[in-house]
Design a protein around this nucleic acid. Structure first.
Length: 264
DNA sequence: CTGCTGCAC
DNA sequence: GTGCAGCAG
């Protein structure tokens, strides 16, 4: 082999190594950033009721008046999205809600689903995590066509994004207004709308998206229901990401732009 | 995946 | 009350 060729080969090898290590570095720094955020960033919203309950797999703010959570917040990692054929347990009262969360019988024969707020499908990694989603503090009365339809589509899209973007923070719940219809002995409010907020808190492209869905079946595409976090805060009185740096918070929450989120 | 119902013990 | 099977969208 001629010296020139050897030099060219070595040069190629060096270029390739540099590229490889840069990419590897980028990946580890992304993962490090995610781990760092998970360890240090408090992603919980403010509570209008003062009743914040923390479980291993999710946290919630409970509204005794409406007998359900005003928000459920959790961290959704790519690693959480696994297939395991778990058996659905029965719903139980949340032992950590002192005023007692709703009895599952209040939902029975009501015509409404026990609709998960933190979906069981997001907590399949461990048995405890999975079972924990079957507390009545984690459910809201949902019309079956809505729950199995567009709400389910949004939950699946959330898992798709968690896989694609490695990690998300999720905040979700019903809009708890006055004078809502109720079901059961416990008078569980039936929300007219449900919301879901996703935050991808990974540098350099921190991004967020929020949805507000009417509580009814719909065949419209999900991007029809995107709104700004600011609008959601006006409707609920909740400050959703109070611990974000202010400049980031202001920018993210004012926007209802979803161009950074792939809908395909 | 999202759920409910019926029946046995 | 709990466990399990079957069914629906």
């Amino acid at each position: 082999m001629k010296p020139k060729k050897i030099i060219a080969l070595i040069a190629l090898l060096i270029l390739f190594s540099v590229y490889y290590f840069q990419e590897k570095n980028k990946n580890t720094s992304t993962i490090n950033a995610i781990e760092n955020n998970k360890a240090n960033f408090n992603f919980l919203p403010t509570s209008t009721t003062g009743v914040v309950v923390k479980h291993n797999g999710y946290s919630l703010s409970y509204s005794e008046k409406h007998e359900q959570a005003e928000w459920i917040a959790y961290s959704l990692d790519k690693k959480d999205i696994v297939y395991t054929n778990r058996k659905r347990p029965y719903f139980n009262e949340d032992p950590k809600v002192k005023t007692k969360s709703a009895d599952w019988r209040s939902y029975k024969n009501s015509g409404y689903d026990r609709g998960h707020l933190c979906p069981a499908g997001d907590r399949r990694l461990t048995l405890d995590g999975y079972n924990e989603t079957f507390l009545t503090s984690n459910i809201s009365p949902q019309n079956h066509e809505f729950n199995a339809g567009i709400w389910n589509k949004l939950e699946q899209k959330t898992r798709y994004w968690a896989k694609k973007y490695n990690h998300l923070y999720v905040v979700t719940g019903g809009i708890l207004e006055n004078n809502l219809p109720t079901i059961g002995k416990d008078k569980v409010s039936v929300p007219n709308q449900f919301y879901k907020i996703l935050l991808d808190y990974t540098e350099p492209e921190i991004k967020a998206i929020a949805f507000l869905l009417p509580h009814k079946e719909s065949n419209k595409p999900l991007n029809n229901f995107v709104i700004s976090i600011d609008e959601l805060e006006e409707k609920t009185g909740i400050d959703f990401f109070p611990n974000l740096p202010d400049n980031i918070e202001n920018k993210l929450e004012a926007s209802s732009n979803y161009k950074n989120w792939s809908f395909r």
